[in-house]
Nucleic acid binder design. Structure first.
Length: 902
RNA sequence: GGGCGGUUAGCUCAGUUGGCUAGAGCGCAGCGUUGACAUCGCUGAGGUCACUGGUUCGAGUCCAGUACCGCCCACCA
């Protein structure tokens, strides 16, 4: 796809001109706006010479159902991408689809089972055909789902781990590792998933507590001829079905109880086999009965003991989890049934000492949920230590930074204890292992392209390994393989590698992040795949539990989009996300997002709607502006500055919160209200400020809420064209804070006016003055008298007071029959003949005096402390002195009011 | 067994170099105007920041310990 730096104005322009409907309808806006973005090629404006910003999209769920966690990932990444794009960086966001081998295989196999057939009935080719059908459908669904979320990813460039380019990258990596001696084939104990019928790696095994039993079984001690005696050793086991696979009994060498037994033989119950008692330090003296049955074929610890002592390995399991002929009379039984039968037999043979209830952790397959059976099998492995060492170094020396930092420890701990990685899977969908076996000479050939003859004997009688590679082997190549590796001249690779940000959930550090770091360093000559790993938390149900479809606590992201709008969903997800911390998603949160989108719509509509033909919308010299204009511009720029800083530190929720609060609580609730009064009095000067603030806020919010901001902004641009000529907000420039407009004096003045208004409203509410009634009021302005005078019309409207007298000192305000409120910045006084009760007033003021006295006392105590004045920084001490002064004058004012009450 | 996180208003959570008179949203109570918005406005109530001790002029924030909740890792048969 070719991308143009500019956009087509016709495609982007809103259909209805600048008229905005009274109600905000997210759905129609979303569809139209997204289509505009897509057609215009705005998703990847090429900006030669700009700083590259690259972000990698983690794989969505290929089952085709959008999980809310992925919606969060998309929202966060899209926010970062849009932000960088607006700042002029050259962004590349590679949306990716992983081939999710085990999950997809399981789905197709289930479909087949429902038809009563297995994959072997239809053969590999037909099986893969069905997989592709399913995967292609899923991929287009995924793209569609991202559109609905507003993701600005360029789906034409989607990276898919199963395409041809990736196959080449995978094979090359495999061969390189093999040639370097880092890939080997070995018979070892692996985690077998009897349902999916494949090996899985250590991290794909999830341990869950299962209530089971501890069977204490008597192993008779044999005499010299190998016949059982009356003596026996008691051995506790949780897996009696593996007894037929026992090839030794082990005790700790330091254990005095069994010292005399070492070297003697015991009889394995129900088999009659005699095995030797060995001493090994792996045996815990405290554990079980102190003696351990050694089953090298079906237990990792035992496997290691077996290796140390050269023990025989017996495999008693078929690949479907049933017992095989090595289990003797139990052959053919399912493992559970085998367990029951063997326990019953042991008991009737009088060899069961006791049974205790016991809860222990049992490994389950992450994908199929089946209980994992350790068994010995021939598999391909990656020798991991040589890959792990540089990956540890890259994090330790800061070339890769985790956000939040604490996950570096998690990562390092795992990496430092890593074990070899079993990469072969006995499934069909996936990258097939690029190894061909020669049937003539037994040599093997590793091929980047399919070999036609054996490398060793040159015979043509070769067949490819039936197995496929672990999904994460190819996913681990993502950061470079999706950019064009192994073609080292690929434009994207040169320009965008290393990437800047890897953003994902912390649950995927080991699976994916660690593998990407290891394999990328290996393939890319030690250059890190990304500079930051930003880890968001998990999204939980409203009650804090893991979302569960069966419990009905799962939030369906697309359902939420339908109900509340895409911007609302993104607001809810982004406002709750802080690095590494889980969040809860509830209807209330979604409503808050919807409400804010509505507020944006209405406040903007109103502000823009006041603009008339011929209005001058350029901002005048700040010095000539009234205080409220200077105040709102000052606040705008402060927030702009904060948002800039926060977003750069991945603190998106705080950035969003500050922008929201500014727009709603300050701009909409105060500035617009004040501006209204001026405009009604035919003063057009607030219009440039209104338009300017709306414009800037929309730009700041666009990364978070792209649809509603784009829609409003295009109406805005129709009356106030973008200075850079941008035709859409998505390609408009991100605002830079203008610190020259930060005006603390204006802020203080306007805040004083806010205080006056609030004080009057407060008294009105307290005295139950009818909301619609106009009453007389005095504002004693003090230092803020100037701005209060300038804003007297606004104060009248906002507090519904008329006539309003703004005076400088209390002496100019009446003191008889008035309800007063003494503030830090001045006073207000409302004459209330009918409602006035001196006794009530005395009590009210008395309370305030007590409070003010407490405050004054507190500050005085602090300032009287020599340690404080000597050690606290000057600005802190000065602030305390200022506070004391205002508190004292307020206290004086209150006391005076009380005196006047008599 | 090891490690990590959490404990702040009725609920969900902010509070990132210690200076706080501790904030927000929702909920609650009261009142509803002025043609942007009832998906709204105004006003208000509500917190000994889990507990104990320490460092400091000063601790929600730093340190040590305790309790409870959650998560991750680990070959206790």
């Amino acid at each position: 796809m070719t991308t143009e730096p500019t956009t087509d104005a016709n495609e982007m322009a809103p259909a209805e001109g600048i008229e905005m409907s009274t109600a905000y309808h997210p759905r129609s806006v979303e569809q139209r706006v997204y289509a505009g973005w897509e057609q215009s090629g705005a998703f990847r404006p090429s900006r030669p010479g700009a700083t590259p910003f690259t972000i990698i999209q983690p794989p969505p769920n290929l089952t085709g159902e959008l999980h809310v966690g992925h919606a969060l990932t998309t929202a966060v990444e899209d926010a970062l991408v849009r932000w960088h794009r607006m700042k002029g960086d050259d962004t590349l966001w590679l949306p990716g689809v992983d081939h999710a081998a085990i999950a997809v295989n399981a789905i197709i196999e289930r479909q087949l089972r429902e038809q009563g057939i297995s994959r072997h009935d239809i053969g590999r080719e037909e099986f893969l055909k069905r997989v592709w059908e399913f995967v292609n459908t899923s991929r287009s669904r995924i793209a569609e789902q991202h559109r609905r979320l507003g993701a600005s990813a360029d789906w034409e460039r989607e990276a898919f781990t199963m395409d041809e380019a990736r196959e080449r990258a995978v094979r090359l990596t495999f061969k390189k590792l093999y040639d370097d001696g880092l890939i080997y084939r070995a018979e070892r104990l692996i985690n077998w998933d009897p349902v999916s019928q494949t090996a899985v790696s250590d991290i794909e095994v999830e341990y869950e507590d299962v209530e089971s039993a501890f069977w204490h079984v008597r192993y008779p001690i044999a005499d010299d001829e190998g016949n059982p005696t009356d003596r026996y050793v008691v051995i506790a086991t949780t897996r009696p079905e593996t007894i037929p696979a026992d090839t030794a009994v082990a005790v700790n060498p330091e254990d005095d109880r069994f010292r005399d037994l070492v070297g003697r033989k015991v009889i394995v119950p129900m088999t009659g086999r005699a095995v030797t008692v060995i001493a090994d330090e792996a045996v815990d003296i405290e554990g079980g009965s102190g003696a351990l049955k050694v089953t090298p074929g079906h237990d990792p610890v035992d496997f290691e003991i077996g290796e140390r002592h050269g023990l025989e390995i017996i495999n008693i399991l078929n690949l479907d989890g049933t017992l095989n002929e090595n289990a003797g009379q139990y052959a053919g039984l399912d493992r559970d049934e085998g367990r029951r039968r063997i326990v019953a037999d042991i008991e009737s043979a009088g060899l069961l000492e006791k049974t205790e209830p016991y809860t222990h952790a049992v490994g389950h397959s992450e994908r199929s949920g089946a209980i994992i059976e350790p068994l010995v099998s021939l598999q391909w492995w990656v020798k991991i230590q040589p890959l792990a060492d540089p990956a540890i170094e890259a994090v330790k020396d800061g070339r890769i930074k985790f956000v939040p930092e604490r996950f570096e420890r998690t990562y390092l701990h795992w990496m430092e204890n890593i074990r070899d990685w079993c990469i072969s899977r006995q499934i069909w969908w996936g990258h097939r292992i690029p190894v061909w076996y020669c049937e003539d000479c037994e040599a093997l050939t590793v091929g980047i392209t399919d070999p036609t003859f054996c490398e060793s004997c040159e015979g043509s009688n070769i067949t490819q390994d039936e197995d496929t590679l672990d999904t994460w082997f190819s996913s681990g190549l993502w950061p470079h393989s999706t950019l064009g590796w192994p073609d080292e001249d690929a434009e994207d690779l040169k320009r965008f590698y290393p990437t800047q940000v890897m953003e994902t959930g912390y649950d995927i550090i080991f699976f994916w992040v660690a593998r990407m770091i290891m394999l990328s360093l290996y393939n890319m000559d030690g250059v890190v795949p990304f500079e930051h790993v930003y880890l968001h938390g998990l999204v939980r149900a409203a009650d804090g539990s893991k979302m569960s479809k069966s419990k009905g606590t799962a939030v369906d992201p697309l359902g939420a989009v339908d109900q509340y709008g895409s911007d609302a969903l993104r607001f809810a997800l982004l406002s709750g996300t802080s690095p590494g911390n889980d969040q809860r998603l509830s209807d209330e949160r979604l409503e808050a997002g919807r409400n804010f989108a509505n507020k944006l719509w209405n406040a903007s509509r109103f502000a823009l709607g006041m603009v008339e033909e011929g209005d001058d919308l350029s901002l005048p010299d700040p010095a000539t502006m009234p205080v409220e204009d200077r105040w709102v511009l000052s606040r705008l720029n402060q927030v702009n500055q904060n948002v800039e800083r926060l977003t750069g530190r991945f603190e998106l929720a705080e950035a969003l919160r500050q922008t929201r609060d500014f727009f709603w609580d300050e701009f909409a609730d105060w500035y617009i209200e004040v501006a209204k009064v001026r405009v009604r009095a035919d003063d057009r000067t607030p219009l440039p400020v209104l338009v300017h603030v709306v414009d800037r806020t929309l730009r700041m919010l666009h990364p978070f809420m792209p649809f509603v901001t784009e829609e409003i902004w295009q109406r805005l641009a129709a009356i106030a064209p973008d200075p850079d000529g941008a035709e859409a907000l998505i390609v408009a420039r991100y605002p830079e804070a203008n610190t020259a407009l930060i005006d603390e004096a204006a802020e203080a003045s306007f805040e004083a006016v806010q205080e006056f208004v609030r004080a009057i409203r407060n008294i009105r509410a307290e005295k139950r003055v009818d909301a619609g009634r106009w009453i007389e009021a005095y504002v004693v302005g003090g230092d803020a008298v100037e701005s209060a005078t300038a804003l007297s019309d606004a104060i009248e409207q906002l507090a519904r007071v008329r006539p309003l007298h703004v005076v400088a000192t209390t002496a100019e305000a009446p003191s008889e029959g008035v309800v007063t409120s003494v503030l830090a910045v001045g006073q207000v006084a409302l004459p209330m003949a009918g409602l006035f009760d001196p006794a009530v007033e005395r009590e009210r003021i008395g309370k305030q005096i007590a409070e003010a006295e407490r405050e004054v006392g507190g500050i005085e105590g602090k300032l009287g402390n020599e340690q404080f004045t000597a050690r606290a920084p000057a600005d802190v001490a000065q602030r305390e002195r200022d506070r004391l002064e205002t508190a004292q004058s307020r206290l004086a004012g209150l006391r005076q009011s009380l005196t006047e009450l008599g």
